[in-house]
Design a protein around this nucleic acid. Sequence first.
DNA 1: CGCTACGTTGAGTGGCATCAAGCGCGGTGG
DNA 2: CCACCGCGCTTGATGCCACTCAACGTAGCG
Lengths: 246, 246
Amino acid sequence: MKSILARKLEGFIGLSAFEKEALGQLASEHVRRYVPREDICRVGERHNGVKLILDGWACRYKDLEDGRRQILAVSLPGDLGDFNSWILARLDYSQCAITPVTAATLSRESLQRLTEQHPRLSMAFWWEGLVSSSIQREWTVNLGQRNASERLAHLFCEIYVRMRAIGQVVGNSFDFPLTQTDLGDATGLSVVHVNRTLQELRANGLVTLKEKSLTIPDFEALSVVADFNSDYLHLDREGRSLNGNE
Amino acid sequence: MKSILARKLEGFIGLSAFEKEALGQLASEHVRRYVPREDICRVGERHNGVKLILDGWACRYKDLEDGRRQILAVSLPGDLGDFNSWILARLDYSQCAITPVTAATLSRESLQRLTEQHPRLSMAFWWEGLVSSSIQREWTVNLGQRNASERLAHLFCEIYVRMRAIGQVVGNSFDFPLTQTDLGDATGLSVVHVNRTLQELRANGLVTLKEKSLTIPDFEALSVVADFNSDYLHLDREGRSLNGNE
DNA sequence: CGCTACGTTGAGTGGCATCAAGCGCGGTGG
DNA sequence: CCACCGCGCTTGATGCCACTCAACGTAGCG
């Protein structure tokens, strides 16, 4: 079994057959399905275990008192999350299924065992966590500095690159199950303005988003609009910039 | 020597004299000073070592092509940073001194040694990293969902609580060396608007910021304006909410 | 004593929010 | 089979929050 997690971590460190086997075993632990809109874990919970998304999309989010909601991150298949619960007492955000999701819950014990038996895997997990912090920083920049079209374009670029990294892009298109409301919650924009900005991007031939499928005819062009530089995704294990900065 | 780092980590796990000793030794490694505006480390660098702020304020930031700048986090004395460089090939942000800063650079080797000899400290370091991720998430919410006065109020609340945790608050006041330009870069607002919003907060008796000193006469009131809940700072090791939610 | 950094103020503008309404679709139940 | 409802998308009208441009005061400093 070649798990999507193995595929992803392999981009970071080469994996032995033995290590892949161990990962596969891990990924079959406490597997369950979640329906769209179902919370996978919730703010304030204790010790809920590390989650591994096997299939489907999810998102981390926080709600404010008055109903405002911010999506903090989009979780794609192969993403690990909520390491939090391993060390911190309580979870400080919630995670919610967007599509039907299949996820494994990794217990503290089996993670402990894994990192003891396969120390290199523990480093790979740490890498995962650092990359997700890096993404969070870039989202901070996105919300703080970019305007509506830049924000949306940047989000599209990021997800495109991440989807490509797990082999989920066909041609220039990929599944994109976020609603316009979700896009608004992720980019800090109102639904109405997301709608109008999407029309603008579409009119400029930068993206088409239709029936939950996103097409990016010219990724370079979209990158320019978004001021997108994929370095923060740390996809290249040697640290070569993919944007030709060095 | 009772280092500020020891004091901080002690809030998380009790430390033995032996462990404190080890921390003290660590904190005396490769110590150097940085003048205000000097970069402590810069985006794109490799293997620059983990930084420990011993004294002074710094900030992490990212610049865009066109000169826009986003401050990602404020580093206070006792803060660790740039674990990044331990595992990831390149740094994805820069860090810059705000006041004169004294910082130690921890080499990969001595960290390795430390975590081998004092495994509990390694967990404490991990905790540090998770808390800083949590702060980053809250900043995402701040930029995405809150308006100008809420954003500033929230930032003030956060720094107040963090300063108090390291014993740097006297009465209701503490040193606050950020300029209005810095505040703008941190909250995604223009300097002009920061200035006007500060006047508004001042007029409402919520804060006074003068000569690099911030006073919060009524922290509760400011928390309400900011919709601030300190849970995300994970200061209580047992996970008791400090806001009485449970 | 000019220069630069920082704070402040005024005027004008526009990006994006809000409110409101309507459309199409799929699901559900009478 | 069809009425009904909820959800997601779309459009128009209106207004405000925050931006930009521009100028000035002050203080520290070489």
